Amino acid sequence: MEHIQEPRNETEAALLDYKMGLGTFTQKMPELAHHFNAFTEACFKEGTLSQKEKQLIALGISVFSQDEYCIIYHTKGCIDQGATEEEILEAIGVTAAFGGGAAMSQAVTLVQECITDLNQLKQ
């Protein structure tokens, strides 16, 4: 039996929930999951836009749409692709310019919490 380590913070717990949910969905709907994964992998491939730029765009859309799992996932994606905290905060600032108070509330809470949690996990 595989031992699963306890998440160290809320961000890690949310990422684990998403991963487990995606695994269950993939078992139940393998063809659909395969096509979705192939599509998103193609969308996030390095191209004219870098993977970092694509993650910053995805984070902005996630904040605008109030999708907490995607906010966490794409904040991690930004960090994994080398985005600085300043770049992330600037991107979500642009999002707040379009999304108003709802986007700003996610930006000043969940995104900043994720950055802190994810940086602690790297140590």
Rank of each mutant, 00 (worst) to 15 (best):
V94R: 09
S65R: 14
T48W: 08
Y73G: 06
A97Q: 12
S65N: 14
D80P: 02
V94S: 04
G101V: 10
L49H: 09
L56F: 01
L59E: 04
E68V: 07
A42V: 09
D80Q: 08
Y73I: 05
T75E: 01
K76H: 12
D80N: 06
I72T: 13
T84Q: 07
N37T: 12
E68P: 02
S65Q: 11
G101K: 05
A91K: 15
T48K: 06
T48P: 00
G101D: 04
G60I: 04
A38F: 09
I57L: 07
C78S: 07
Q51H: 05
E53T: 14
L56Q: 03
G101I: 04
E87G: 06
Y73K: 12
A97G: 13
A38K: 07
G82F: 03
I92A: 07
E53S: 15
T84V: 01
E86G: 13
L56S: 02
A96S: 12
C70E: 11
G47W: 01
A97D: 08
G60K: 07
I71V: 13
I88K: 04
I92N: 05
T48R: 06
I92K: 02
F44L: 10
K45S: 14
A97N: 10
F39Q: 10
E46I: 04
Y73A: 14
G82T: 00
D80W: 06
I71M: 06
S62W: 13
Q51M: 07
G101P: 11
C78W: 05
E87K: 00
F39S: 11
V94Q: 04
S62C: 09
F64C: 12
A91P: 15
E85I: 08
F98H: 09
L56V: 03
I92S: 03
Q81R: 05
Y69T: 14
E85N: 10
F98G: 14
F39E: 12
E41P: 11
S65P: 08
A97K: 11
K45F: 08
I88Y: 04
E53A: 15
S62Q: 06
E41D: 14
E87L: 03
F39D: 10
G60W: 01
I72H: 13
H74R: 03
I88V: 11
T95Q: 02
A83M: 01
G77T: 05
I61V: 14
G93I: 08
F98I: 15
E68A: 14
Q81T: 02
H74L: 12
K76N: 09
Y69F: 14
E46W: 04
S62M: 08
T95F: 00
G82R: 01
E46D: 10
L59R: 03
I71A: 01
D67C: 15
E90Y: 03
T84D: 07
E53G: 11
I57V: 10
E87W: 00
C70D: 11
I92W: 06
E68I: 09
K52D: 14
